[in-house]
Design a protein around this nucleic acid. Structure first.
Lengths: 326, 326
DNA sequence: CTGTTAGCGCATTCAT
DNA sequence: ATGAATGCGCTAACAG
């Protein structure tokens, strides 16, 4: 292993100077700094994080706990976060382990900033792990009770925005396909806000792990106008996969027979139907930037409490249009 | 932060003794050991991993460099690798950074075992980074020149197997959609081996980043029997997304009008068409196990050279059937 | 501007 | 069985 001492010897200075030079500390002539940088590069110097971490607490590394059930969207988000982080001189480490194990892993590797995508109330074991974790955990997405540092995503508002968009196009009966979450709340609120019709048939509660999912989707698709709603909001990309397959098979034309909005904007979505899909959800680029801003600046926050809301954007594409006349 | 020195003071011994006691080293009376343990517990002592790591530098951790362009398949593979690793007491860290940066990250964190998914000849900068990396890199997939520790995936053989399957079903004209890689070589070899017809129209060279991709796929789909082949092999899940969309739009029925085989078996694939898709490619579970076996046992290998081939499996599903009579 | 040095928390000698 | 001392690689404070 090569250390700053090796570099010092090579450069003909002491290793204190090397440390200053490499860390952009003042008090080194630009000439020596450049020389030292060159030598470090040439010798392929890699700083020893453990040693750094012993002295000052910052590791310039952010750990990310990969959530289950968010496959594609999270992959895209990770890519963007990585780019953001690189630009700011941070490294990123991902873990696909169980959240509590991931936290332990990060702990072992001196990573003291963690981004945790939350989609439900936390388990007892994770709460315990969090307790003994020595660092900052930024919780993103859902806002469980008792968190003091989190970035909530306004899923409710997002779906409400989708309802509004459809209502403005002239739809009177808008259906919802998804699980019983905030998104559903946003849907029902939208119905009320925009004074829309409501039929129990228009709410299809299911998710990809539900054994009766196919049955439920089929039941929805089997109906025809005017029994079926003229527009549908699907609450996740995972469900959208399933729905698109069945809609294709059933020859339901989008958007002629059914306008469609999907939560979460992932590129793969638009390959599933003949037309690109209108989406709502946080903008991936903006979210990545926001995440990095928040977690890198948390040191300076006065209060021990930090809660912000991330707004969603509606991206109108060809899967939504005014309802066709009967 | 509480250290072994605090415990030592409390216990009335020196901190060397505390270290021995807490690490189950011999040379401590059971009585003092018990006492020290009790005090440590009571004081809520948490060992400082950075300091530990400074003296003995082993991490029991495997780093994985996330390849570009392998989105879904690699996500599935990672999940399986994680499970395998957990069972063996290893940790997993993923990096989505540029390969050379990822390597530096791992170095910083004392991760000395790395799995690198290779899909092409390596860049000069990565070769340099590899040079100075202090640890083992297992290269998987493609086998570039000069690698000494790698697990090659028999992509050529896989596609050849696909051709064979289609030939045995009775297809005489089989097309290929994909990039100019080993997979294409496997295809042409299959044509020769099984004495099939060959038409230049049956080879569509493209990939998702190709601006003319849509045009090329459309040209293929626009033809009808007997101008079009009766079966098609798609070389990647990414392309399959695009193809499925266009096939659906063009109302090409699978498998009635066209039998279809796709390389790489990812669950999402089967939501894209009305029928589940026949696939070839390495079995994810087996591959994960093989990877872990190889990388955890590499310490004991005598030779400095290790090369093995991973076979692929064909999973027949409903997207392939005998060609319909004209 | 650069050299020198203390010390971060710990495992590991070598003494006792 | 235990104490004392050394050093891992590095930053920061102080000295020159």
């Amino acid at each position: 292993m090569i250390t700053i001492k090796d570099i010092a010897k090579q450069a003909g200075v002491t290793y204190g100077t090397v440390s200053r030079a490499l860390n952009d500390e003042p008090g080194v002539s630009e000439k020596t700094r450049a020389k030292i940088r060159a030598i470090a590069e040439q010798m392929n110097y890699v700083p020893n994080l453990a040693a750094k971490r012993m002295v000052d607490r910052s590791a310039n590394c952010i750990g990310i706990i990969w959530p289950k059930f968010e496959g594609l969207f999270f992959y895209r988000l990770s890519e963007r976060i990585q780019q953001e982080a690189s630009g700011r001189g941070y490294r990123i480490m991902l873990s696909v382990a169980e959240p509590e194990d991931a936290l332990a892993s990060f702990q072992e590797h001196f990573i003291d900033k963690v981004i945790h995508w939350v989609y439900a109330e936390e388990t007892a074991s994770f709460a315990a792990a969090k307790q003994s974790f020595h660092g900052t955990i930024l919780e993103v997405g859902y806002r469980p009770n008792g968190h003091t540092f989190c970035l909530e995503i306004d899923r409710k508002g997002a779906v409400c925005k989708a309802v509004r968009h459809l209502a403005e196009l002239g739809h009177r009966r808008i259906a919802f396909l998804g699980a019983r979450t905030d998104k559903l709340v946003g849907y029902t609120q939208g119905l009320v806000d925009f004074d829309l019709e409501y039929s129990p048939d228009d709410i299809v509660i299911t998710k990809p792990s539900d054994p009766r999912m196919e049955h439920k989707i089929a039941a929805f698709l089997d109906k025809t106008h005017p029994d079926r709603a003229t527009a549908l909001i699907v609450d996740s990309q995972g469900l959208m996969f399933e729905f698109a397959k069945m809609a294709n098979a059933a020859n339901v034309r989008i958007p002629d027979q059914l306008s469609l909005v999907c939560y979460d904007d992932v590129p793969e979505l638009h390959s599933m139907l003949p037309v690109p899909i209108t989406t709502v959800g946080p903008n991936v680029d903006a979210l990545a930037r926001r995440l990095m801003d928040t977690i890198t600046e948390q040191d300076g926050r006065e209060s021990d409490r930090f809660e912000q809301i991330v707004e969603s954007v509606l991206t109108v594409r060809q899967s939504t249009q005014a309802p066709s006349p009967p």
